[in-house]
Design a protein around this nucleic acid. Structure first.
Lengths: 234, 234
DNA sequence: TCTCGCCGTTTTGTATGCAATTCGAGGAGA
DNA sequence: TCTCCTCGAATTGCATACAAAACGGCGAGA
C-alpha cells in the first residue's frame, strides 16, 4: 500500500506542476520570471513534455503566461486585473460565508482556530504569513464542499499572491489576523450578514490598504525618480 | 492582414481545443464519451501531443475528466455538483449584473438585443437554442471587462450544458428567452436590485425546473422500472 | 554614432517511438 | 456454469528527434 512516489496526484506531470506552483506562490519565482522548458526539465529530471504539460495547467490557472513561440513567464497581472480579481473574490467568498454561516462543525472550528493560531505565531515572518493568510481563505472554501467554488477561490487566492507581490506595500500585513478571528466568530454564531460584511470589508481593506496606494502613477514616479537620481536629473 | 488559419488563438493545439470544446457543447460528444488521443489526432490530422495538450486544457476547464492511465472522457458531473455549480454561477452572475447595471452602452444594448432576437428565432431547434441561451450569459460577462469573472462565467456556463445534458428535462426550455429580455430591460434602466433578483430567479428556475425533478430518487426508479418491465417484474 | 539586416544560437512547436499499463477474450480448473 | 488466470491488443506515459521561430551579436552602410 505504500506509495512509491513522494506524493499525491497522479503522474510526474502533476508533481512538476506542484513544484512550479509552490515556487511561484513562495515568490521564489517572481512575476515576469522566464520559465524555459529545457532548464526546468533538466533541473527536475523530466523531459520537456512534462514541463510543458505543467505550464499549460499553470496558464489555465492564470499563474503563468504562455506567449506563443516566446516561452512562458510567471504571470504579471495588471493593477486593474488585480482590482477586478478582488471584486470576483468578494463575490465568491460571500457565497462561502453564506454557505458556512452557522453550519460549522466543531471539528471544522478546531481546524480554523488552530490555523489562526498558526497565523498569529508566524506573524513576523513575511513569506509564511502571506501563505497562511491565503490558506485561511482556501480552508474556508474547502469546507463548503462546493467543487467549483473551491477551485475558483483557490485560483483567486493564488493569483492574489501575485498581485500583492507586484503592487503590495512592503509592510502591509495583507490579512489582519484579528479579522480572521472575528470572521470565524461571526460564522460560528451564524450571523450571516455580519460575517458577509466582515468578509467584504476584509477583502476591501486588502485592496485599499495594500493595493491602491496610489494607482500606478506613484509607481511610475517612484521608478523614474530612481533613474533620475542615477542620471543626475534631480 | 488576412489570417491563414481558420481562426483565432495561437497554434493548432488551441484549434484542437476549440474543436473538442465545440463538439462537447453541441453534445455531439455526450458526457461519458471516451476521448482516445490517437483517434482524435488521426481524425484532426495532428499528433497525439497536441490532442493531449487540448485534453489537459479541457480537463482544467472541467469539461473533460482525465483518468490516469485510463484515458479521457467527457465529464459527467454529479447532480450535486450540478446544483453547487449553479450556486456558484449565481454568485458570479450577480456580480455581472451589478457591474453592468445602468452602464450599458448603446452599442452593447444593440448586441444584446439582436442576440435575444436570434434566440427567439432559434427557439424551436434544440441544439442551437441551448447554445444561444448560454452565449447570452457569456456575452453579459464579457461586457464587464473583468478577466477572471469572464473566464469563470464562461466555464460555468459551458459546464451547465453538461449538467443539463445529463439531468435536464427533455423539453425544458432552459432559459426562457423572455427572461433574458426582462433582464436586459432592468439593466438598461439601472434597476440593479431588480436585475439581480431577476438573474437569481432566472438561474434558480433552471435548477428547479430543469434539474430538480426529482432528486435522483425518481431517476433511479425510472431506470429500474424500465428493467423491471423487461424482466416481467411488475 | 546610429540603424538595419544577416546569421548563429537558443528555445519552442510538433511528430514519433518505445515502455508500461489497462482492458478483454478466451481457456483451464473447480 | 462460474471463477480465475493468462496473454494479446489497444491505449496511455514519457522521452527524444527534428523543424521552425525568435533572440542577440556583429558588421555594413548611412
Amino acid at each position: 500500500m505504500a506509495k512509491k512516489e513522494s506524493e499525491g496526484g497522479g503522474g510526474r506531470a502533476q508533481a512538476v506542476h506542484r513544484v512550479l506552483k509552490r515556487a511561484i506562490l513562495d515568490q521564489a519565482l517572481s512575476p515576469g520570471s522566464k520559465l524555459p522548458e529545457d532548464s526546468i526539465g533538466e533541473r527536475l529530471g523530466v523531459s520537456r513534455t512534462l514541463v510543458r504539460e505543467a505550464l499549460v495547467r499553470l496558464s489555465e490557472e492564470g499563474l503563468v503566461e504562455l506567449r506563443p513561440n516566446r516561452g512562458a513567464v510567471v504571470a504579471r497581472p495588471t493593477l486593474e486585473e488585480g482590482r477586478n480579481l478582488f471584486l470576483t473574490r468578494m463575490a465568491l467568498e460571500r457565497l462561502v460565508v453564506e454557505t458556512l454561516s452557522g453550519k460549522l462543525t466543531s471539528e471544522q472550528i478546531g481546524i480554523l482556530s488552530s490555523h489562526i493560531a498558526a497565523e498569529e505565531a508566524a506573524k513576523k515572518e513575511r513569506a509564511p504569513s502571506i501563505r497562511l493568510a491565503g490558506e485561511f481563505h482556501t480552508l474556508l472554501a474547502q469546507m463548503t464542499n462546493n467543487a467549483s467554488l473551491i477551485r475558483y477561490v483557490n485560483e483567486l487566492v493564488a493569483r492574489s499572491s501575485l498581485i500583492l507581490a507586484l503592487y503590495g506595500r512592503p509592510h502591509s500585513s495583507e490579512c489582519a489576523v484579528s479579522e480572521h478571528q472575528e470572521l470565524l466568530d461571526k460564522l460560528i454564531a451564524g450571523k450571516t450578514d455580519e460575517a458577509a460584511a466582515l468578509m467584504a470589508h476584509h477583502l476591501d481593506s486588502v485592496t485599499t490598504r495594500a493595493l491602491l496606494p496610489t494607482d500606478g502613477d506613484r509607481n511610475i514616479k517612484e521608478v523614474l525618480s530612481a533613474y533620475a537620481v542615477a542620471e543626475g536629473l534631480a
